[in-house]
Design a protein around this nucleic acid. Sequence first.
DNA 1: GCAAAAGTGTTCGTACTACACCCATGG
DNA 2: CCATGGGTGTAGTACGAACACTTTTGC
Lengths: 230, 230
Amino acid sequence: MALDQNIRIAVDAVVFGYQNNQLKVLLIEQKFNSDKTYWALPGGLVMNDESLINAVKRELKEETNLQVNYLEQLYTFGDDINRDSRNRVITVAYFALIDSTNLEIKADTDADNVQWFGINEIPKLAFDHNAIIEMAFHRLKAKLSYQPIGFELLPKEFLFSELENLYCTILEKEIDRRNFRKKMLSFGIIEETNRFSTQKSGRPAKLFLFNQEKYNQLSREGFHFEIKFA
Amino acid sequence: MALDQNIRIAVDAVVFGYQNNQLKVLLIEQKFNSDKTYWALPGGLVMNDESLINAVKRELKEETNLQVNYLEQLYTFGDDINRDSRNRVITVAYFALIDSTNLEIKADTDADNVQWFGINEIPKLAFDHNAIIEMAFHRLKAKLSYQPIGFELLPKEFLFSELENLYCTILEKEIDRRNFRKKMLSFGIIEETNRFSTQKSGRPAKLFLFNQEKYNQLSREGFHFEIKFA
DNA sequence: GCAAAAGTGTTCGTACTACACCCATGG
DNA sequence: CCATGGGTGTAGTACGAACACTTTTGC
């Protein structure tokens, strides 16, 4: 039965970064039928002897030459039979977070051009990639409140004001600085360092870091990260 | 490139039911190489011109002849390259809920035998189906707290004690009857009927029903269902 | 009248909300 | 000394947690 199945399987990644107080998505420019070009998510077909997760990692390395901090499966898009006009392709979309400060993207072998786009400045993309980003953005907003993944968008050592800004920006909400800090620190998964940032102006700020092992340990003991806002 | 891709794509469904105060999973017995038989999740290969969701619905109809109340994508299993020993198969797993009271399963064309298994009495299944059920069970436990999906496992009209029991059983926790009822009713998504159940003993109990439209409307207005326990 | 399940209110404590002033540095 | 961003505490409120007795029915 169904030995004649003729469906291809691909992976695509929505890679989020955070720069200049803006949430960004990584896109690549692809040639399409050698005439038109489209911006699209990094991704491509899965090889026969390759796990899905490795396919994503390989494509990201080939196309953008960067390594992600966080990677998880998002959703499999296979309900629109004609999403790729050439052949039926089902794509398993992934959700990735990266510390994009001090990062130089190299346009690598596969793709002509690689670029960060603000989440609100995404052009019309190839296939159903706009819908995929939309879903990834929803996932990010939801997860930010119940999993400590915001840190994956920041450098290892960060300022509280950066973390706070990240939450404000992504969730599109105002947050009370004092309450946010109190709550975050109450979990005991953020450590104070002895280092301070060198700012342009104002009082120097302590650098903090996220203690992943501590979080893992607390999770095993039944702790549940959750941060809500008025 | 990769015109030689040789990977097949399947769908599988974890169908949950609730009978006799027990959470059940629907399994089918499959012939395997015409000698050995295994219990497995209902599912099968996707057809070329068929959406993923329709593939699931078709398989469920073919193999079990039942219709589900709730169906959503769970996860795509494609990291273990040898999960099916015959060929590489990637499966998109779905998560389904059904009101299984007053339901007769028909062993239909495809499958030899169809049966409900208690969640704690699942045998060793074909492929990685045990892992899929495990993940579906986790999803069910999590969603029960923040989405009103428990109703999908009950008849249209149900007793509060049934609902309460369902939560206790699935979450494996004791719940205070008074607080549970208060909280549930406070949402305004459950309606009282004029009907009462005919019990064997004890005081007759009112029948309630879940108002899906009311819930949808409240959701649009920013309402968020959430029910927690001590 | 007794067994069995249904139905119902109050008190207490904790955790979220709202809110404003001083501090350290650079120029 | 002024501008800029960093750092901190408290009072009020609302919501979740704990908890026990009365009601209705069948036998």
